[in-house]
Amino acid sequence: MSSEGSYYVPAQSKLPIFASLGLFLTVFGAANWLNGNDTGPTILFCGGLLFAFVLWQWFSAVITENLQGMNSDQLKRSYVWGMGWFIFSEVMFFAAFFGALFYIRNFAIPWLGGEGDKGIANEFLWQGFEATWPLMTTPDMAVNGDAAKVLGPEQSMSFGTVDSIWSWLPFWNTMVLMTSSVTVHMAHSALKNANRKGFNIWLGITVALGFIFLVLQVEEYMEAYLHMGLTLESGAYGTTFFMLTGFHGAHVTLGTFMLLVMFLRSVIKGHFKHEDCFGFEAASWYWHFVDVVWVGLFIFVYVLG
């Protein structure tokens, strides 16, 4: 709590209304596309473009205002609160999917397999289905055999034996992301010591690590789809595997992009001073957040998978 006496209330702005329009066209186009309307992709593309353009303008405006010294310490604290609570909302979004994984593994599948009072469904609907995780044989396969529509994967992504850990991709992915959390912290420390060169190098390494992680993820997905018979449609295992890792991957993509922008701002424009670097700090918090989510994924999806 504090007050500097004069708070900067920005003048009228065209940004919000166009951001709303862009966001609306994006989702409206996406919905049309999914429903098989030919105009969908065009609307989605135009909406996305408009939205991206408005966000570009918006961030530019905020950066410019800051450089012109219009942002009081109080406003900067508002930005800090804003980013913090935004990350909390993201945590809750992932919580929904982790919760779904927990429920499916610990309740739904054992019940389908005949456990407890609720296991009566096994006797009447899914006779012959046995509860396992990773779920390789779906209830549909257990009952309908070759006529089944929902097929399980041929192989899962779970942890094999201890000797094979060096050739296990998720292990390397974990190493890459954990390292990147350290390097982004090193970048922050360098900036705090007014070491521009160190900042640029450590931040550049972080962006590269983010990029490497994404390449490895693509590699893993290709392996899954091409050789392991593991797809989004492979029953509850494929569903939870791809939705959790997929949303995480999307967040890593966004985080890498944010850090890349910060890198370019520093290298090209010389932005960020040791006491004024909120844009970078926000991106780095976001980066730590996607790392923490990965640790959860690594444990619950891969190791205990």
């Binding site: 929904a96 209830p139 089944a148 989004l232 449609e233 029953g235 509850a236 494929g238 569903t239 939705m243």
Partner: peptide, 24 residues
């Protein structure tokens, strides 16, 4: 999250809410 799961079940054949695939 929950409407996203619906969207995936409807358009991308996931099994969040489909017992045949191990969902519920």
């Amino acid at each position: 999250g929950v409407v996203t799961m619906m969207l995936m079940d409807i358009h991308f054949n996931t099994s969040f809410f489909d017992a045949a695939g191990g969902g519920d």
